[in-house]
Structure formats: structure tokens, C-alpha cells
Design a binder for these strands. Structure first.
Lengths: 183, 183
DNA sequence: TGGTACATGTAACATGTTACATGATTAG
DNA sequence: CTAATCATGTAACATGTTACATGTACCA
């Protein structure tokens, strides 16, 4: 009678399919693999791990070198993951503070708003560049690229391009009148 | 020595610039105005309102008709909002469970995955249609449309189009081989 | 007069964030 | 030997979610 897994916990189980991993490893794996569209912190990972060990979904092995504490999947954990991955995934949630600032844009000076917008625009430009690099690296490697990972990376690419398009078509009151198109 | 406002509380203050409103009104306003990229629940609103009243950022007025309890901005609340709206807005967070399902796509049957993907794709198609309608309604009205609200709606349009483009270019293993392009 | 929409609120819990404490091992 | 990195964990708190309890007023 377990409550359904939360996505964060489920992801950890997903990673554990590759073999035993420690909390530290899982944080690193999560940040590189799903970090672009799912965030999780160290303390969250240790908490979920402890809870799942408690529920019998994972078991801790012997402490290793630097006090490393590797967790492995149990059959129960495997089943729970299996059920989770087949369920209907919930709707996405987007929380974009910049949009709040914009919606209340009449309450600050146009110059300040434009400044804020420009900063975020730069950030997204960098992110797009990073994703593009990740993509070409993945394609250029020796082993054949993972279709699934590639699909989620492509999501990031589509998203960042859309955001940049949006920035570019913002009216002058918001974006500022000075063009800053030099990269 | 107030801790900085959280975006949810700040938004409530933002809405209160239009005049006194009750928790109920604020929930409705938030859902229509910022609901597409910021979620908040009823109980959250009542909690924040109570906390802000406590901190002197808002004051409750006389109970009205159906036990309505209107809150209004205080000078302190106005100042706090003013400071908040000029600050650097934090980075957006996207939490997209479907992408987790996809990244772990090797662990479920392609048919099931395709089914899930198709469902979400349909949802996004509907959302895009809704946004497009909202946009033309806004433009068609008598009073001149709000630039700021329009900018955030445009974000939604860009986002939904990007998501749909992404769905369409997903490889067959993920999207399913049967084309479902009829709307 | 009875159902629906309006309206406020609490309780319990889940999840996410930040800061800190502690110790092990490695590299320079 | 010492700084950096690896590694685990706790504490405290903020935020978000779900479910429920209570009562008011309108309208068919």
C-alpha cells in the first residue's frame, strides 16, 4: 500500500538500473541527465534514498572508500519504478519569475525592465549555445547516441529557441529601444 | 528586516494595486492573469494573505456581503512590492514529468510510450488553440490591449508552438510510427 | 426549497531550499 | 601538510498540495 512514487524518487530508481550508486553519484547523474527540466538537491536525494530504503525499494550496501554508501534496487523497487514509468505523467509546471515582472511591468521604470529582460535574454542565448554544443558532442561521439536522451535535449533546444524568438519580438516598451543584437 | 517577498505573495500585492480584493477574487485574478506560468492554490493565497496582514503589508477591511473579507495594500506593502518588482527575477524552473518518462523510455513498451506522448501532444494542441483564441479576443476588444499581459501571452504562444514542433520531430520509436496528424 | 456558486479557513502532509556540521581522501 | 574535493547527513524552514469543514447567498 505504498503511495505512488514522486517523480524525483522515481528518477533515482531509474538511475539505479545502471547498477548501485551512492547519493553523491545520483546527484551528479541527475544534474547532467535530467537537470535541464527537473531540479533536485543533495538533501532531497539523501532524504528520498532514506525513505526508499525504509520502504524496501532500495538497499544500502557496505560502505566503501570515502565512506561511500552504495544503494541498489530491490525487486520491489524495480516493480515500483516499472509501474511509475507506465503511468500517465502529470502536466508540466513552468514557474517563470521574469514573466511576473513583465506582467507587472507598469510598476517599474522601462529602463530597469529592459535591463532585466536583456540579462535574461543573454542567459538564454548562452543556454542555447550550450545545448547546441551538447548536441553536437553527443552526435560526434564514438558510441551511438541515446535516442531518449537526445529527445529530451531536443526539447531544450526547441524551448530555448522559442524563448529567444519571443525575446526578439517583444515590443520596445519592454525590451528597450536600443538594439543589442551583437553576440 | 522582512525577508524578501516570495513571488506568489508579491503577485498578490501586485493585484491589490487595482483596489481592495478578497482572497477569492485574488485566486480568480491570478488564475486568469498569471495562471499559465505561475500556479497558486486557494489555501496558499489565504496563508500568504494572513502572513502579509501579520507583517503589515496588507490590511483586512470590514467583512462584506457573503462574509467577504477585502484586503488592501498598505504603504509598507506598496514599498515591498515596489522593491520586489525591481529586483532580479530568479531563473525559471520547468518541471516536465513527460520528459522523465521519455528519458527512461527504454523501460516501457514503445506502444505505451507513444500513447502517452500522443495524449500530451493533444493537450498542447488544445492549449495552443486556447491561447490563440485569447490573443484574438484581446486584440478584438474595445479597449486597447495591455502590452504587458500581451507579452506574457505571447510567451505562452511561443512555448506551445515550440512544444508542438518538438512533438512532431520526435523519432518514431518515441512518437509511434502511426501518424496522427488529423486534428 | 434545494442545488449551485460564493467565500473563508484549517489540518496534515509532501516537497523543495538553504545552511551548516563532520569526516575521508587525494593532489600538489 | 594543507587545500580542495569527495561524501554523508541533519536541522530548520519555506512552499506547495490535497482534503476537508463551515457557512452565505442567489436563482430556478
Amino acid at each position: 500500500m505504498e503511495r505512488p512514487l514522486n517523480p524525483t524518487a522515481a528518477s533515482l530508481l531509474g538511475f539505479l538500473h545502471h547498477g548501485p550508486m551512492t547519493g553523491w553519484d545520483l546527484v551528479a547523474a541527475a544534474q547532467t541527465v535530467i537537470g535541464n527540466y527537473w531540479t533536485l538537491t543533495q538533501s532531497q536525494v539523501y532524504r528520498e534514498l532514506a525513505a526508499m530504503a525504509d520502504g524496501g525499494l532500495v538497499v544500502a550496501g557496505e560502505r566503501g572508500r570515502r565512506d561511500r554508501k552504495p544503494y541498489s534496487l530491490t525487486d520491489q523497487g524495480r516493480d515500483a519504478f516499472s509501474e511509475w514509468v507506465r503511468r500517465e505523467p502529470g502536466p508540466e509546471t513552468i514557474r517563470f519569475p521574469l514573466l511576473l515582472t513583465i506582467v507587472f511591468g507598469r510598476h517599474l521604470e522601462p529602463e530597469r525592465l529592459a535591463e532585466i529582460v536583456a540579462g535574461h535574454r543573454a542567459t538564454h542565448r548562452e543556454r542555447l549555445a550550450r545545448y547546441e554544443e551538447m548536441r553536437s558532442t553527443a552526435l560526434g561521439g564514438t558510441d551511438e547516441p541515446d535516442v531518449y536522451g537526445m529527445a529530451t535535449l531536443d526539447f531544450g533546444l526547441h524551448y530555448e529557441r522559442a524563448v529567444l524568438d519571443w525575446f526578439e519580438q517583444l515590443p520596445a516598451v519592454i525590451r528597450g529601444s536600443v538594439q543589442e543584437d551583437s553576440v
